[in-house]
Design a protein around this nucleic acid. Structure first.
Lengths: 197, 197
DNA sequence: GGCGAATGTGAACAGTGTCAACATTGGAAT
DNA sequence: ATTCCAATGTTGACACTGTTCACATTCGCC
């Protein structure tokens, strides 16, 4: 066992442990109420130790968000692997909606407002771009190789808007009052945005 | 002038003044960084006076959000008035997107996560329902009177998802890296979700 | 073995939301 | 018109937050 030993020298690697602890607390109660001190407490370290590894509270949050993007991309890949384009497209959309519903607070952190100047923003942007590229690629495959790139792009953004909007409305409880049988089937709506080949 | 008089007795009606002050600060810097004390300072009153009119910081925020919904509904009505159904529908969607872009922080507060138990949540829900009903009505008018209600509902939710998603992605800067000429035309995409009569 | 750099700690500061006790004032009942 | 209560506003305080500074410890390298 690791933690059964007497109190360790320095800690091994705090950075990772802090991200894990923060992620756990965020999944429970959201990023808004997260306290650096509580993260530190959970990692068995004193409050200011955080600043040896993250310049800011925001930097920690960005690291958690980046981890979230990593697992999101993973979900995308395992949802679409080996499927023909149109199946892959709807599978990816459904995976996105499922992710937002399974990890509402994390999703909210990942796609919340950006701090443009932040240095951690770079990695975040990288991940966000990558996950969008996955969507754009599948969309392109659905539309066929002869489709002009701006058509692919605008279709991908429309699809993303649709799926993201639905995911966000659901995760924030905005659709809670509407009985489930009246809600649209996301797969079907997505299909209607991609003109058949 | 009003404030040129010597310091007034009680204040007139603080509640409204506090909501106005809070709304102004929120439009500038967002609800996350809003400080009750600063609101009070801006209203020329001392911090704890807020608690004579709002049980909570959250209650104040809810009041601001409610005011936001009121102006949103107003925008909807003046955008759709006197237009045939399909024009009204796209006008309403565009008005929604414009609202989110003109008042990003307010929009974010209005459609952010709900606190279910909150007492102020009731009024918020009322407004949200009302603004959604506007959309559902226009959608119904587009689809024709013979359309089954669940079809109207699911179409309205799909439209809302699309427009809300696009508005949110834009307002949070998630589409900032994509050149404008590659972005979809919301009106056109909306039209493709409503089958022609 | 020793030394510098990396890492963790404690005390402290300004700022926050919120509560309890106190002060003031407006309006209603006499 | 006086009195009195309820509404409204203030002061002081508590626990908590993010963050900084000076200090302690420990690892890796010469």
């Amino acid at each position: 066992m690791d933690q059964a030993r007497n109190k360790p020298y320095h800690h091994g690697n705090l950075a990772a442990a802090l991200v894990v602890a923060a992620a756990r607390l965020i999944e429970e109660s959201g990023a808004a109420t997260l306290s650096l001190r509580e993260v530190a407490r959970l990692a068995g370290v004193s409050a200011t130790a955080v600043y040896r590894h993250f310049t800011d509270k925001e930097a920690l949050l960005a690291a958690v968000a980046a981890r979230g993007f990593a697992t999101l991309v993973e979900r995308f890949e395992q949802a679409t692997s080996g499927k023909p384009p149109r199946d892959a497209l709807t599978a990816q959309g459904l995976a996105y909606i499922a992710f937002a519903q399974d990890h509402p607070h994390l999703h909210s952190l990942m796609f919340g407002p950006r701090v443009p100047g932040s240095e951690a923003d770079a990695e975040l942007s990288h991940w966000a771009e990558r996950s969008f590229r996955l969507l754009a690629d599948v969309t392109g495959a659905c539309l066929g190789p002869a489709t002009p790139p701006e058509k692919v792009m605008s279709t991908a953004v429309a699809l993303w808007s649709l799926v993201h909007g639905y995911a966000v409305l659901r995760r924030d409880g905005q659709l809670a009052d509407i009985p489930a049988e009246l809600l649209p089937d996301p797969a079907q709506v997505m299909a209607s945005l991609v003109p058949p080949l």
